[in-house]
Nucleic acid binder design. Structure first.
Lengths: 162, 162
DNA sequence: TATTGTTATACTCTATAACTATA
DNA sequence: TATAGTTATAGAGTATAACAATA
């Protein structure tokens, strides 16, 4: 089995997967309790709320969060209904929609973040000496960049319309 | 923001999350194409098919895969319908159900694995020198153990039944 | 009385394809 | 003709609570 992959390599991959799953499960409970948010919704808000965040179009966020456009439209609708984000026409390209965080969205993010950070600290960081954390970043950043550089789903050709 | 968490720490966490998401997306496409499996279904088969795998009860797998029991019952039903797993009574505790891989399940796993490994290699391993891979394991294994040691969802008290 | 597992139900999420509008 | 976004639809996945059986 695992043609050309060592046990070691496969094990590392499965560990990465399992850590991701277990972490998401715990985080999911916290986000639901503190802000009635799904992990995906939190990710949208957090991405928009990052310090030097650029303007995002719908497609940009869909690609980043790993959603089909339609799926992201749905989520954006949910968040907009709650007044957490706003959508407005892009002045440069009338086809595009720019998404931004509202004041309410920023508030909710601020309200959810402490508990979120607490969970992350407890589950991830306390098991990681600062030195290892830095190592983790050094190791994963190139992987992330490699993954980001792949053509996103939105780049797939669409079927001809009737 | 991020009371008590450094930028560095938060960034490492977000990177871990994003790598997990992007990896799962790519893997998901491959599993669907090669075996008509969701990532979760693959995870069930792969867990059951590991070399020295023990007997698993339904609850054990639900906890491991991060599902509610009912959700796992649903997935087990899907896999059983396709003849990929089998459920049988546990001789030691008549309440329990033991899950095992069928020959068909083993076949499918073997058929899906090469493509799966290929994706993992391309997206994860080629960006990781062997040395870093070992580091990654050393860093994540304790985290995984810590996460596993938490009380799983199935341990939550159930509401009194009417 | 607690635990294992299933089921009924309701809801959320997701993708595909059709559709509108702009480039 | 291609791209950005939305929507309709249909299906998959998930959780809660109720249920049956065993410990």
């Amino acid at each position: 089995m695992a043609r050309g992959l060592s046990e070691e390599q496969l094990a590392a991959y499965f560990t990465l997967t399992e850590v991701g799953n277990l972490l998401e499960q715990a985080v999911s409970d916290q986000l639901r309790a503190d802000g009635d948010l799904s992990p995906v919704q939190f990710q949208v808000l957090a991405t928009l709320g990052e310090p030097g965040a650029p303007d995002y179009r719908m497609t940009d966020l869909a690609d980043r969060i790993v959603y089909s456009r339609s799926g992201f439209s749905y989520q954006a609708g949910q968040l907009e209904k709650r007044g957490l984000i706003a959508r407005e026409r892009d002045g440069h390209d009338e086809r595009s929609t720019v998404v931004r965080l509202t004041a309410q969205g920023r508030d909710l993010l601020a309200r959810v973040m402490p508990g979120h950070v607490e969970v992350v600290r407890e589950l991830l960081l306390e098991a990681l000496p600062p030195r290892d954390l830095q190592t983790l970043r050094g190791v994963l950043d190139p992987v992330r960049d490699r993954l980001r550089s792949r053509p996103p789903r939105s780049a797939r050709p669409r079927r001809r319309t009737g």
